[in-house]
Design a protein around this nucleic acid. Structure first.
Lengths: 225, 225
DNA sequence: TTTATGGTAAATCACGAAATTATAAGAAAT
DNA sequence: ATTTCTTATAATTTCGTGATTTACCATAAA
């Protein structure tokens, strides 16, 4: 890799792409070659990413890809469900026809890519397109919620979610269900039924809730209440 | 200031203390003198703080204290109400006697400091003690929620809340109400009534919801549902 | 086999100088 | 008078290095 790649965004992408195994040491001195820049530039960006929870940082001990932990996966997923439900429901209240149209458009693009994936299998290029389209769909879903901060927090959690569910994305095991779930979320949005939206969002993410009953109950309760 | 002050934590404190007016430029070259370190060390920490939203950063244009905006204050406050309500209610479900005891203890310490403030007025030292005690009280309130990520997000919002409400803290206008409100939150926690807790939390923060009815309705609705 | 100890290699951190870029001020042109 | 260009100054970002700290591994002691 040469010439003017934004280190921050590219590192964030790689951290969520499965390129680094959990717990891998991230050496600024090694990564600099990928970007043709100084080690301290890489260090700066690793520090920023550590503030977002995508990199583990310990003083005098450098940077690491976070270790995998099922409780972490569960926590991230449950938190994403909460934020996304809350924001989506607010968007349903406040967003008008314009929002519905944008969401339709975003779903159409996403759906197109997912069909391709299901037909001709996965490539690096296709995964990248899908990542962008999937993020755009979910961000559009929340875009009319009226709270920039809520969307900012969602984005923080979104990347952590991607990072901790890397395998799930690469294996196309659940692709068919995924397509269906995105469609169901779109439908709920057009219906205007908030409880339905909450259920659909929960259905979309629940396979990554890996902990036992008692912990899941928390989510279910807050879904009911 | 000399000798081994943690730049990150001290800068965060100062950013939330009212030392810098909104929009003030933050020059690494100037701040270095306060910590007796190199400008690039300050820069690293300003970058990290910008990732948390406490500093505005634009490439090639340096760092600034964020501009004040009423919508921002409202958004931050509303988001804090949402996160704190959600986490506090989960804590009520999961936290047992141990949690109640810890919360009592934290409230007692906070209450002691608030009494002093109300009797003898404010000093720099007292403000610092109050800051720590108030944070500890609110963190203890959420500590049994079972979600480290939710608490992490709360902490991000907490510091932004402090930053955007600096004046309110320094002026002791609402001190009496504040004392009462903290007490009310503690009582709600011991009662175990989740709806009551949500109302008490809302009462505690509502004075910083500066926008008109329609925006506030959002919060009220999610409080009812 | 386990636990200490020491030495070596490697990585991290802080630093200030060098290069790049923005900003401001003044001159020329419309 | 207003705009555009030019130049000078200031601020920001990048970079390579030296000093410090940590990790690793081999060897010795328990």
């Amino acid at each position: 890799m040469r010439e003017e790649i934004d280190v921050f965004h590219d590192l964030r992408r790689r951290l969520c792409s499965g390129e680094f195994a959990y717990g891998t040491k991230l050496r600024a001195e090694a990564l600099r070659k990928d970007y043709d820049c100084a080690a301290s530039t890489v260090r700066e960006n690793l520090l920023r990413l550590s503030e977002l929870g995508l990199v583990d940082f310990q003083e005098q001990r450098g940077f690491r890809m976070p270790e995998y932990a099922p409780e972490r996966q569960h926590d991230i997923t449950a938190t994403r469900i909460m934020l996304e439900s809350e924001a989506a429901c607010r968007a349903m209240r406040q967003g008008g026809v314009e929002w519905e149209a944008q969401l339709s458009a975003a779903h159409h693009k996403l759906s197109h890519i997912e069909s391709r994936m299901s037909a001709r299998g996965m490539t690096e290029e296709l995964l990248r397109l899908w990542s962008a389209a999937e993020l755009e769909f979910h961000q559009t879903l929340l875009s009319a919620c009226g709270s920039p901060l809520l969307m900012e927090l969602h984005l923080i959690v979104y990347y952590r979610y991607r990072q901790v569910n890397i395998e799930a994305d690469r294996a196309l095991t659940d692709l068919a269900e995924n397509i269906e779930e995105h469609k169901n979320i779109l439908d709920a949005a057009l219906t205007g039924d908030e409880d339905l939206m909450r259920r659909r969002i929960y259905e979309h993410f629940k396979r990554h809730l890996v902990l036992g009953e008692s912990a899941q109950t928390t989510t279910l309760v807050s879904l009911a209440g």
